[in-house]
Structures are given as structure tokens and as C-alpha cells.
């Protein structure tokens, strides 16, 4: 029981910290915090996609699909923003479903290039068709979240703090859903498809259907993050979702490591803090692509298992043999409903 208590205490502590955090920050830091929260969702959804072993280069374009769709639904059709955000995410799922037909005829390197091409086509369509996508200049004056008063707190979504709380709630819920999926038999099947697709097939797993599922779910959450972004910054264009952002996502995921759920999130948070604290303070903001490129190379060369492997190493040294045994028993928690453990 004390383990469970310390667990709950840990999560409560984190919750308090995340709620209190913006009040300790400056206005511009609060804005960065909103972006960070959205990026956490983006990179976590990217990891879900990689569970089946396929690395996409079109993920941020899918994020853009969510952003464009939600922006257009609210602006052109006058749909209430929270609803349009959900519809934006669903649109991303739909686009992913259509793309999955050509893309999942490919594997590995071909999938990588194919997803890149598909993403570029979508970006070019935004650029080409001024109506409704606004062409190269994109969409401006996207409807913001309407103000909301829930008694204990009145949300004014022009304030970064308000939007941060909103995004935090959405992202937390999304992460919980993704966690539940990964620790379920569905998640196990994703892993199975990744490691030995032929063996999985012989156990009756429709490999392509599972790849498609992972792709669609991941795209839905990427679209959600895009919609969150669009209604916060108020203006989007084809270059908001270009290769540079894709490289950032790749860097977060690879620097953090993709073997665990928290790895990419860790990478995203650490690099964003590094970016803010070190680069911006030193006036190096312009160097961001350079630093990211360097980090990407260094982590591929010298830390192939990412920051998460460092965390695991430290944890392992701290825990004793007994705890190691306990974790081994909990290894198959996915099927053990009685002793289910939360992240």
C-alpha cells in the first residue's frame, strides 16, 4: 500500500506543480508553456505512430490538417470552437484513413519517403487553393476560444494562463487515452506488428489493419494538437507545418528515446527548456535549427537509446533487487486487471 500512496502523492504533486507553474513565469514564458503543452501532445502522438515500426515524415502536416480544418469549420461554418477542435481532430483521422491506402502498401524507407511526399502534396494543396485555404498566406484571424466562466475560474482565452489550463486538460486526457491504448492488448498487438509482422500475422493479426489503426489514432491526436495551436495563435499557413517542425518532432522523439511512453515527452520538455533558458537568454534564438541539428546527430551517434535510457539507468541503480522482482511481475500488467498500475 505505501507504494500506492507514494504514487498518488507523486501525481498530486505533479498536478499542483503544473497548475501553479504559469504563475511563476513571465508573460512570454507563459506563451512558451502553451506551445510546449501542445508539442507534448504532438510528440506523444508521434510515438504512438512509431509503435508499429513505421516512421512517418508527414506527421506535422497531419497536425496541420487538424489546424486548418478546425480553423475553417469555426470561421467559415461558424461552428462553436470547442466543437470545431474535435471535428478538426476527426478530419485528421479521416485524412489519415485515406492516406493509409497508398502508404501502407509501403514499408520502412519507402513508407518514410511516401509519407513525406503525401505531406508535401497536402501542403501544396493549401498553397495552391486560396479558397478555402488562403494560399501561401494561410488563414488569419482564426476564431479564438470563447470566454468561459465555470464559477471557480473565469477563462479569458486571450490570456496564456487560461489557454494553458485548457490545453493542459485536453493534453492530459489525450495522454491518458494513449497510455490506456498502449497498455492494452491493442498496444501489445502494435508491438507485435513492429517486431515480427509475419509471426503476428500467423496468429491471425491483420497487420495492415493494425498499422492503419495506429496511424489513424496518432493522426487524430496530432490533428487535435494542431487545432489547439490554431485557435491559440490565430493564424496558420503552409509553412507553419513545414519540414523544420518535423525535424523538431523527430529530434524530441530521438533525443528522448521512443522505447518508453515518457521518452519523447521528456525529450520535448528538456529541449524546450534548454531552448528557452539557454538559447533565448543568450540571444541565440536564431541558432535553434543549428542546435537541433547538432543534437539530432549527437543523439543518433552517442545516445542511440535516448534520454530515457539515462533515466532507466539511474532508476535501476536506485532500486534494489526486490523492486526489480516486483516490476517483473508487473511486466504484464496489460492483462492483469487486478493489479493495474497507472503511469
Amino acid at each position: 500500500m505505501p507504494r500506492a500512496v507514494s504514487h498518488i502523492a507523486g501525481w498530486l504533486g505533479l498536478a499542483v506543480l503544473l497548475i501553479a507553474l504559469p504563475h511563476a513565469l513571465s508573460f512570454s514564458q507563459q506563451e512558451v508553456l502553451v506551445f510546449l503543452t501542445i508539442n507534448v501532445l504532438l510528440v506523444a502522438s508521434y510515438r504512438l505512430l512509431t509503435l508499429t515500426g513505421e516512421w512517418s515524415l508527414g506527421h506535422v502536416v497531419i497536425m496541420g490538417v487538424g489546424a486548418y480544418a478546425s480553423a475553417l469549420y469555426s470561421k467559415q461554418l461558424g461552428i462553436y470552437v470547442p466543437v470545431s477542435i474535435i471535428l478538426g481532430a476527426l478530419t485528421a483521422v479521416l485524412v489519415a484513413m485515406v492516406l493509409s491506402y497508398p502508404l501502407f502498401r509501403m514499408k520502412g524507407f519507402y513508407f518514410l519517403i511516401g509519407s513525406f511526399a503525401a505531406g508535401e502534396i497536402i501542403r501544396l494543396l493549401w498553397k495552391r487553393f486560396r479558397d478555402p485555404f488562403g494560399g501561401p498566406k494561410g488563414i488569419k484571424k482564426i476564431n479564438p476560444m470563447p470566454d468561459l466562466d465555470i464559477g471557480v475560474y473565469s477563462f479569458d482565452f486571450f490570456e496564456p494562463v487560461s489557454y494553458y489550463y485548457f490545453a493542459l486538460a485536453v493534453v492530459t486526457l489525450s495522454l491518458w487515452v494513449m497510455w490506456r491504448i498502449e497498455r492494452s492488448p491493442v498496444g501489445l498487438t502494435f508491438h507485435a506488428v513492429h517486431w515480427q509482422d509475419k509471426l503476428a500475422q500467423s496468429a491471425g493479426v491483420d497487420v495492415r489493419a493494425y498499422r492503419t489503426r495506429a496511424f489513424m489514432i496518432a493522426s487524430g491526436f496530432a490533428g487535435l494538437s494542431g487545432a489547439l495551436l490554431a485557435h491559440y495563435i490565430g493564424t496558420i499557413n503552409p509553412n507553419s507545418f513545414d519540414v523544420e517542425l518535423m525535424v523538431f518532432v523527430l529530434t524530441w522523439a530521438i533525443v528522448g528515446g521512443t522505447a518508453t511512453f515518457y521518452g519523447p515527452i521528456l525529450g520535448c520538455v528538456v529541449l524546450s527548456i534548454l531552448n528557452e533558458v539557454v538559447l533565448r537568454e543568450l540571444g541565440f534564438e536564431q541558432m535553434r535549427p543549428f542546435i537541433y541539428g547538432l543534437l539530432l546527430i549527437c543523439s543518433v551517434l552517442f545516445l542511440p537509446n535516448g534520454l530515457e535510457s539515462v533515466v532507466q539507468h539511474i532508476m535501476r541503480r536506485r532500486t534494489n533487487v526486490q523492486a526489480a522482482k516486483a516490476s517483473r511481475a508487473g511486466d504484464s500488467a496489460r492483462y492483469n486487471v487486478e493489479e493495474r498500475t497507472e503511469p
Binding site: 501489445l188 508491438h191 496489460r334
Partner: peptide
Amino acid sequence: LFAELSVLDNVLV
């Protein structure tokens, strides 16, 4: 086999 998964997880697949 799924070498990276536990014995139980293999059979669960």
C-alpha cells in the same frame, strides 16, 4: 519469436 517481448506477452499475441 517476439524476442523483445516477455514470454507471457508472446503467448498473449
